[in-house]
């Protein structure tokens, strides 16, 4: 029984990180209809920037948190302004290719500026052990679950009540009509990119704090893909739940079957979901009119 509880707890913790990245995927998809293939790389870049910041100015938790948010927002806005907005009106696939190009650039930039070796993130508080019942958890794991919960509530309220949230839903529904109704779609998209990068950045920092920082952590983006698909690419809250489910599935297959199956379980899941229900568990079904 304790075994199952342990598996569940760590599964939720890693799932929360996937969930955060999946939310970032969904935010961009919802407002612009494209998948940001550089999402994992954005998370990595923010993590590296934060690592550099912590190395320079100390790893006080509040300082690190504020810097992460600022770095994520700025990075998101810069990407949107420089690369995405000029591509407006081009076929979606061209823009997706732009994000693939961006992914390649960010990966190499990290190697160019810093180095290829793994380093400790330097946030000691994250790896402290917390005893809950009879299981040990790292403080960072508990924190990321809490962060995910908080962001879930915040984004629910955002889409429900805030002006931008409602505008974003309108743009997602039908961007031309939204534009006609006086919604500034460009600004909505900028906000979506900023929010998406910030959330991804937080996930990147949490991941790096738990598993060290190294130039291959962009792969959490790949792991979060299945989560976003499962939850529904246009469902921000659904994607977060998708993350938890993927984390749990990984840990259960790893705990009861074998570790190699664990690593591809996500991709098998993608294929399964797409074959049966392409819009995911919580996504809106797309209806195509001729």
């Amino acid at each position: 029984m304790n075994y199952l509880i342990q598996l569940t707890a760590t599964g939720i913790a890693i799932g929360a990180i996937y969930g955060l990245i999946a939310m970032a995927f969904a935010l961009v998809y919802k407002s612009t209809g494209l998948i940001n293939f550089a999402q994992g790389e954005v998370a990595m870049m923010v993590a590296y920037l934060t690592w550099a910041f912590a190395g320079q100015f100390g790893s006080g938790l509040i300082g690190v948190a504020v810097f992460t948010i600022v770095a994520g927002m700025v990075l998101g806005l810069v990407i949107e302004r420089l690369l995405i907005r000029p591509m407006m009106g081009e076929p979606i696939f061209s823009i997706v290719l732009v994000t693939i190009g961006l992914a390649v650039i960010l990966r190499s930039l990290v190697l160019l500026i810093w180095d290829a070796s793994p380093h400790p993130m330097g946030i000691e508080a994250a790896s402290e052990l917390i005893r809950i019942g009879n299981l040990n958890m790292r403080a960072g794991q508990v924190f990321v679950i809490g962060l995910m919960g908080a962001l879930l509530v915040a984004s629910w309220a955002f889409f429900r009540y805030s002006r931008y949230g409602i505008a974003m839903r309108a743009v997602a529904d039908d961007d031309r009509t939204a534009l006609l109704m006086g919604v500034n779609t460009a600004r909505v998209q900028a906000v979506a990119w900023a929010a998406s990068s910030t959330i991804a950045g937080m996930a990147g920092v949490c991941f790096a704090a738990l598993y060290d920082i190294s130039p291959d952590i962009y792969s959490i983006g790949l792991k979060a893909f299945p989560a976003a698909i499962l939850g529904g690419l246009d469902a921000v809250l659904g994607s977060a739940f998708g993350g938890i489910i993927v984390g749990l599935i990984e840990n259960m297959t790893g705990g009861y079957m074998s570790s190699t199956i664990k690593e591809i379980s996500g991709f098998v899941l993608i294929v399964g979901v797409l074959m049966i229900r392409p819009s995911g568990l919580f996504g809106q079904r797309e209806i195509e009119r001729v």
Partner: peptide
């Protein structure tokens, strides 16, 4: 006795099995 995929970072389930 187990095998993992190259590049894996999270070993929570594997180490739990080891302990068990």
């Amino acid at each position: 006795d187990d095998k993992y995929t190259r590049g894996q970072r999270d070993f929570s389930s594997e180490m739990l099995r080891l302990q068990a």
